[in-house]
């Protein structure tokens, strides 16, 4: 997290933090309801979780390859057919595990934050 000139780049830390766990919110969105990429992006933007849109596509591809998600093609009235992503059984399991891990992490970090803010 240190730039070439040796200073600590806070913005970069923040973006790294978001990128690092983007997988989890994406799984959450897809898990809620089968969604296509632009809608995933929209929700991520609303949640203020996305750094740049481009990151999503390699991520989706990777998750597809690890068989966490799958997609079906769906005809669109305006334009080309869309990929509608949904969770596989493995994806659901992974999401559950990540959720637990996240809650744990959240508790620990919050504890530290509270301790710091005191």
């Amino acid at each position: 997290m240190t730039d070439s000139d040796g200073t600590y780049n806070v913005a970069k830390v923040e973006s790294q933090m978001r990128k690092g766990f983007l997988e989890f919110p994406v799984l959450l969105i897809i898990g809620t309801k089968p969604t296509y990429a632009p809608d995933i992006l929209k929700q991520l933007k609303q949640a203020n979780l996305l750094v740049v849109e481009g990151t999503l596509y390699p991520l989706l591809s990777r998750m597809k390859r690890s068989e966490l998600v799958t997609y079906v093609w769906e005809e669109s009235k305006s334009g080309p057919p869309r990929k509608i992503y949904s969770l596989t059984k493995a994806g659901e399991n992974a999401l559950e595990l990540i959720e637990t891990a996240w809650k744990k992490l959240d508790t620990s970090v919050n504890k530290l934050i509270k301790q710091y803010e005191k």
Partner: peptide
Amino acid sequence: LEMGAPIDFKEAGGVE
């Protein structure tokens, strides 16, 4: 600008 520079993809993909 909206999609992001390829270098940003790489960082995200870098995890992979």
